[in-house]
Design a protein around this nucleic acid. Structure first.
Lengths: 256, 256
DNA sequence: TGACGTCACTCGTGCTTACGAGTTGAGAGT
DNA sequence: ACTCTCAACTCGTAAGCACGAGTGACGTCA
């Protein structure tokens, strides 16, 4: 009893068994899975096989394994934090989704150049001189963290007085650009990837949780690239939101 | 020579060494890493340790391991497919980001009810009767796949003649709603999570690659939920894009 | 009663061995 | 010259053993 009849490798079969148990509600969210020894007994497999199966489930984000305690079923990734990337404007004040987040550390400003890798990613040419402003932010109520990088070409900074001190907030940057007479337009892309170890530490991302990355390129209507923002967050706890009024949008953009 | 001086577990140290090598360009994208035997020799560790280190890098999405050939450095996740979620309108024709994608299979239509889990996720109450239209799509030039689900409350379908046959395309659904006199408004959220095994198969997602999920809730200006769309894609190959003209948007939404 | 230490339980790491299975290229045979 | 076979390489799976290390409960001792 307990042996399994499923396709594929043994550890895959064990993983599939446990996965079914989770899906069937046998192990509800938060529940403690059987210990490795119990799983060995139950499925008549060796400990390495059990560990591989458990590791598999962890890499799928289904369970959390705690040293000395056991494996717990993760609750479904229900993002509790929403970053609203819609830009709103009240008079001369801009508000973006991170306005209410707190700075964990003072922002750091670096001068650098875009490379062949970072340039196109951000909509810039290679070798362009830029300010890079890095921030580590935290959402006050949940503690969710975000990394925020703003890339400001020196060409842009030279034309806008306020950008001589580039460590002003994104909201202020937008306000400064608007004040300088630019008609702002942005294009934002959202992608996902697994965080590197240092990103996992900085953002307090658990195992097997992807990172959401939103890249916003701000342009003026003449097509010039003004600034870029890169915002990275825990994909499990955060989601990125946009709000659009189709018909209002259409009035501006439809031909005729 | 070859031994390592780094904190943490042995396999972590080996993983960190290789990771540095990748970052330093010693192993450029596409390069073949040393074989497991060579890594054993180089770092004087056993094969399980090497395998664990390699497994770690794979779970970070840094390498691809091919049976019988070796481990290859993955090129940086540079999404080659962009799903533009901006809605455009030409006369009575709507266009969304998936308009040009091909249907791999005919769409399936299911009648069901929202649950306590799926309802709130989609902006609906629990137990509401809905049509569920599922599609498996493929981008013609790259083959990238997407799962697309459209949830149409029966209450909505009852008021719009064209929705008696709910397997019409999203573009046509929008057109039908607009034709029925609704002023459309939408809110879209993007999240990321690891795909479940069946999702990985359906979308042909490699190991250690997260899934991007965009949920679009279409409302009328009176606040009623009209329809929901859920679109899931390979996070490595695709990204989700939005285009906004700040000032046009602001004209419609700013007070005064 | 309270503090502390021990012990049993958990997972974490590491080594060894063995064999299966995919891939490739060199060499023998035609 | 071509084809086929096979050997040698690669990673994949599975087992057993040993020990370290975190956690929590229980029992002893002050």
């Amino acid at each position: 009893m307990g042996e399994i009849q499923r396709p594929g490798a043994l550890y895959q079969q064990v993983a599939a068994e446990i996965r079914s148990g989770i899906a069937a509600g046998e192990y509800p969210p938060g529940a403690l899975l059987p210990s490795e020894a119990q799983l060995m007994e139950r499925y008549q497999v060796s400990r390495p096989t059990v560990r591989k199966a458990v590791d598999r489930l962890r890499s799928e984000g289904l369970i959390d394994v705690v040293h000395g305690k056991g494996s717990f079923v993760r609750s479904l990734p229900t993002p509790s934090v929403t970053i609203d990337r819609t830009i709103t404007r009240e008079g001369d004040t801009f508000r973006t989704g991170l306005s209410d987040w707190e700075e964990v550390e003072p922002p750091t400003v670096t001068r650098g150049h875009t490379t062949a890798t970072t340039g196109p990613l951000l909509g810039l040419d290679e070798g362009e001189a830029v300010f890079i402003v890095d921030r580590l932010l935290a959402e006050p109520s949940t503690g969710t963290r975000a990394m925020h990088r703003m890339v400001i070409p020196l060409a842009t900074a030279a034309e806008v007085e306020e950008l001589e001190h580039p460590d002003i907030s994104p909201d202020q940057v937008y306000a400064a650009l608007a004040k300088a007479g630019y008609h702002l337009t942005w294009r934002e892309t959202v992608s996902a990837r697994m965080p590197l170890p240092d990103e996992r530490v900085a953002l307090a991302i658990p195992d097997a949780v992807p990172m959401l990355q939103a890249v916003r390129v701000t342009r003026s209507t003449d097509g010039a690239h003004l600034i870029q923002e890169v915002c990275s967050v825990d994909g499990d706890r955060a989601r990125v939101a946009f709000f659009i009024d189709v018909e209002a949008f259409e009035k501006e953009h439809s031909p005729g």
